[in-house]
Amino acid sequence: MFRKSSPDDFDLVIEGVGNFSFARRTMRDEMKIQVEYARFIDGVTPTDWLRAVAGWLSVLNVLTVRAPEGWDTEAMDPLDDDTYSKMLKVYTALVTQERSFRGIVSEGSKAQG
């Protein structure tokens, strides 16, 4: 279900959800994420909701190496609001960690430079 582990993987503990391991994103991963996204939107012009959820799921499905027991995005209840808050929480933690690897500078720091 999840991708194979590699030495570049990193771990995150997401409060209220559990422990995850993610792969560091590569160019190939980014292409896989875009293909996964295209599958989710199935050729339609996505609504804001579809754009957001398809984006979260695409990234999580491609980059997840290990997840807590019971974490299965395909089996999550789409009518449970808690489903979306958990997905967003995990996605946000992942993206925040990725930004820290790439040394993305805040707007305030750019202005000073």
Rank of each mutant, 00 (worst) to 15 (best):
M1K: 07
M1E: 04
F2V: 12
F2H: 11
F2M: 09
R3K: 12
R3D: 03
K4R: 03
S5R: 00
S6A: 12
S6H: 12
P7K: 11
F10V: 07
F10I: 07
D11Q: 09
L12G: 08
L12A: 09
L12K: 06
L12P: 02
V13C: 07
V13N: 11
I14C: 10
I14L: 10
G16F: 02
G16H: 04
G16S: 04
V17K: 04
V17S: 06
V17P: 05
V17Q: 05
V17I: 12
G18L: 01
N19V: 14
F20Q: 00
F20Y: 02
F22L: 02
A23Q: 13
R25K: 15
T26Q: 07
T26L: 10
R28C: 01
D29G: 01
D29T: 01
E30R: 14
E30F: 14
M31E: 10
M31S: 14
M31T: 08
M31K: 14
V35C: 12
V35K: 15
E36T: 14
E36N: 11
Y37A: 08
A38G: 14
A38C: 05
R39S: 13
F40N: 06
I41P: 08
G43H: 06
G43P: 06
G43A: 04
V44E: 07
V44L: 08
D48H: 05
D48W: 04
W49C: 01
L50E: 10
R51S: 12
A54K: 03
G55V: 07
L57A: 12
S58T: 05
S58P: 05
S58R: 00
V59S: 02
V59W: 01
V62F: 08
T64S: 00
V65P: 00
V65I: 03
A67G: 02
A67F: 00
P68V: 01
G70D: 09
W71F: 05
E74I: 05
E74D: 11
A75Q: 13
D80S: 12
D80H: 10
D82M: 15
D82I: 15
T83V: 14
T83A: 09
T83D: 07
T83L: 09
Y84I: 11
Y84L: 10
S85V: 12
K86W: 04
M87K: 00
L88W: 13
L88K: 14
L88G: 15
K89M: 13
V90G: 01
V90K: 00
Y91F: 15
Y91I: 04
T92A: 11
L94T: 00
L94A: 01
V95S: 11
V95K: 10
T96C: 08
T96M: 13
E98Q: 12
E98M: 13
R99N: 14
S100Y: 02
S100E: 08
R102K: 04
R102M: 05
R102S: 06
G103D: 03
I104Q: 06
I104F: 12
V105G: 04
V105I: 09
S106G: 14
E107Q: 11
E107W: 08
E107T: 10
G108L: 13
S109V: 15
K110N: 12
K110I: 15
A111H: 11
A111E: 06
Q112L: 15
Q112P: 07
G113W: 14
